[in-house]
Amino acid sequence: SATEWNVSVWGKRRAFTEHIEKIAELVSEKTGGEFTMNVSYGGLSKNRENLDGISIGAFEMAQFCAGYHPDKNRLITVLELPFLGVENLDQEVAVSHAIYGHPAVQEEMAQWNAKLLMTSPMPQYNIVGTGEPRDELAEFEGMRVRATGGLGEAFTAVGAVPTSVTATEAYQAMESGVVDTVAFAQHAHLSFGTINQADWWTANLNPGTVNCPVVVNIDAYESLSDEERAALDGSVDEAITHYLANYGELLKKWDAILDEKGVTKVVISDEELAAFRTQAADPIRDAWIAEIEAQGLPGQELFDLLTTTLAQAKGTN
């Protein structure tokens, strides 16, 4: 009989969900309409409960971000460490999928009855700000920045104050001076309107990003027919390619949007960036590895896997 999967994502349809829409289209095509996916934007769960929903079998597929609940997914938070040096979305896909393939990571997600299917690659979370551009490390002192997780820690390390506002409140928070700066990917700066408040945008700070995998419920995955499973697994690459092409178009428009809104592109010097990395990246990475190792998990091994994969990815493109 026909298989219908419920897929839980949130917000509105946007660049960030295009690979999910694409994979739904592909599996339906490949199985002649036998295996369909019903993508729900917020109707089935709150974003921070998506992993719980997968765990209890409320729906079969879902997207979530590692930073929403680090203790649920300690190991993939390695991908959210600051200043990893990832330069583009292809590299982001390569390192994410290498980490997802590690047995310890798969084991941790299996505790939630979840199988990692693919990532939702996000560009670096560069910041938009109001007022005078901040292009020196010293100017980050006392800056109120909307940033979460590892990114928030990195800004703390250089004296900034991460301020918690939800993504939907970010615009209001910026307008009201609750924060001076907001760290988002480009598509989020557009969809949450923070770009409209901005005077400047850091073009090369590249402080890090968030990692948002798409997972499937293991029981549901295993009860697929061989043909259906092949259709799903075989569509991942094509879905990601579609996502990258779509996001690429958005990035092409980005410079034009900056011009149109009169936002200054701030370029930070190499010395300042190096200083930022020493102050923020190294101690946070060391603390992360120590904390993960202390729980008997392969923190060092995962970090090394990430660096070697990244080096390879840089070599090939």
Binding site: V165, E169, Q172, A173, E175, S176
Partner: peptide
Amino acid sequence: NPFGEAWGT
């Protein structure tokens, strides 16, 4: 705030 930045949320 009609005269400038709103004060908060």
